[in-house]
């Protein structure tokens, strides 16, 4: 049986998938690099979008090669998109609100904020709402989308001092090395930062694929806020790029000299 008619399309299919994967990765890196001075989450989002777009184009090409008209696929995707937009409009607005509040809104969990006639401590920011705990112990749920349209006042004392940067690093990245790199790099900005508070890195969540962190710095002068935000972002991204993977689990992995046998009488006492 002659398999040539099947092998060639299969080969082309495989090459197209490989090329798409390569281009997608390339697009991811280029966008990430181009946006290295932006907020890390925005940069990551844009890089992901670029990656997805390349894959969509790749999918269209692959379908064409398989002899199927891509028009149907495009039509289905388009209709599904419109349907999703119409039916999930509010949820998407809230989700978008949450996304942007993480990045741009000057409040976080633990802060006290005032919004319209409501005032309370932020105890949760989920995908849909921000939950406030009022002084009279009431829970107030505010749709995240509202924060994009309305004025919100952060009443936490000295809230302007604190800048919190969400960062996502790969699950295989050596967090200790990344942290060391961030601290070293940010120490160059120390004259602009509150000297009593070195940058603090907090782990928010982790999966095998990624670790979500926040880097918090305290600034000295409110007028430096924007400039410091940009510079700190850039430095975090650089540190992320340089962070090595977690060392493998084996002895003799650069962990110092082999065990020494101390001479009698020189063992370390209390």
């Amino acid at each position: 049986m002659d398999l040539t008619p099947y092998l060639l399309p299969l080969l082309i299919f495989g090459l197209t998938v490989a090329l798409t994967a390569l281009l997608s990765r390339l697009a991811h890196l280029v966008v990430e690099q181009a946006m290295s001075q932006s907020n890390p989450q925005v940069a990551a989002g844009a890089a992901l979008l670029a990656s997805v777009v390349i894959w969509l184009i790749g999918a269209v090409v692959i379908i064409q090669q398989l002899g199927i008209s891509p028009d149907i696929l495009l039509l289905v995707v388009g209709l599904l998109g419109v349907a999703a937009l119409l039916s999930l409009r509010e949820q998407l607005e809230n989700y978008g609100g949450k996304y942007f509040s993480d990045i741009y809104s000057p409040y976080k969990v633990g802060d006290s904020i005032r919004f319209r006639e409501h005032e309370g401590k932020v105890i949760e920011i989920n995908a849909m709402t921000t939950i406030l705990l009022s002084e009279d112990d009431h829970l107030i749920a505010v749709p995240n989308s509202m924060f994009m349209r309305e004025v919100v006042v952060n009443t936490t004392p000295q809230a302007w001092r604190e800048l919190t940067f969400p960062v996502s690093i790969g699950g295989s990245v050596d967090l200790a090395a990344f942290e060391g790199g961030v601290l070293r790099s940010l120490s160059k900005l120390r004259t602009r930062l509150d000297r009593r508070f070195p940058p603090v890195i907090t782990t928010r969540s982790r999966t095998p694929l990624s670790t979500e962190l926040t880097v918090t710095v305290m600034i000295r002068r409110p007028e430096d806020r924007e400039a410091i935000t940009l510079e700190v972002n850039k430095r975090i991204m650089e540190a992320r790029g340089k962070a090595p993977p977690t060392p493998p689990k084996a002895a003799g992995d650069g962990r110092g000299e082999p065990p020494a046998t101390p001479p009698p009488g020189t063992a370390p006492p209390p």
């Binding site: 200790a176 942290e179 060391g180 601290l183 070293r184 120490s187 000297r195 070195p198 890195i201």
Partner: peptide
């Protein structure tokens, strides 16, 4: 001053 030195990053490294 110490909190902003290379040494401090090593201290943080060990704790991390």
């Amino acid at each position: 001053e110490l909190l902003w030195t290379e040494h401090y990053s090593e201290y943080a490294y060990y704790n991390r």
